[in-house]
């Protein structure tokens, strides 16, 4: 019975091909440092899942953002756990992505034929920082408000176009409801969509070229 179901699915999905092409591939002898990439992916998925749960109660308006986060922490069953994981996941993700970058740099894994994988990787690193920056404002507490005030001010110090960047980020000359709204939008739609797309390309390139081997004296 199960065999028949499997065969039916295989005919249509090509499960066997997937197995041979994706999973049953040869790899150079692995190293624990090589797990940091998959750890970053795992953290991205965790952030996505906990983030989706948080949007159920979170309200992106200056009048309600703070109270809705309070409610998540006190009123919602296991809300504190979901928010706690999301909060610490952000810290760990930045850390893990950064160490992953260092690992690739020190083992020179970015060299031929993996240059493009590195470029995409830098994009992923910057976007992870962008997620951290936009997510920091959302609880709408003192820390968030003033850190974002200063952060956007720094972006505003760019010569000539600084004024424009500042207004584009804040949605006006000052931090307001618009700022919160667009940071929220960037945090839950724009950046994650870009991140997911880039992660897709990153993974495709890794499967295409295989994981790099640990360099020895020969290399």
């Amino acid at each position: 019975m199960w065999k028949k179901v499997y065969e039916w699915l295989d005919e249509r999905l090509g499960l066997n091909d997937m197995y041979t092409n994706l999973l049953d591939r040869p790899e150079p002898t692995g190293n624990w440092w090589n797990t940091l990439g998959s750890a970053s992916l795992f953290l991205f998925v965790m952030q996505g899942l906990t983030g989706i749960f948080l949007t159920v109660y979170y309200t992106p308006s200056p009048d309600h953002a703070y109270d809705s986060v309070q409610y998540i922490m006190e009123g919602v069953a296991f809300g504190w756990l979901i928010r706690g994981i999301h909060h610490w996941g952000a810290t760990l993700m930045v850390l893990v992505v950064f160490i992953h970058m260092l690992r690739v740099f020190f083992t020179a894994s970015f060299k031929y034929p993996r240059e493009l994988t590195w470029l995409i990787g830098i994009g992923l690193l910057l976007m992870t920082l962008g997620m951290g920056f936009t997510g920091y404002l959302l609880p709408w507490n003192q820390r968030a408000f003033w850190a974002t005030t200063v952060g956007t001010q720094i972006a505003g110090s760019v010569p000539f176009v600084g004024e424009f960047i500042l207004k584009a980020l804040r949605g006006g000359p000052d931090l307001s409801a618009l700022t919160l709204q667009r940071f929220f939008s960037a945090h839950i739609w724009m950046l994650p969509a870009l991140l997911a797309g880039l992660i897709g390309i990153h993974l495709y390139l890794i499967i295409k070229h295989g994981e790099s081997h640990f360099p020895s004296k020969e290399d």
Binding site: D24, R25, P26, E27, T29, G30
Partner: peptide, 20 residues
């Protein structure tokens, strides 16, 4: 290196899962 290496599944994935 590939010839004296391991298989992606289960060898590499196993390590990844432990770390995750």
């Amino acid at each position: 290196e590939l010839n004296k290496g391991e298989r992606f599944w289960p060898d590499s994935i196993f390590k990844d899962l432990i770390v995750s």
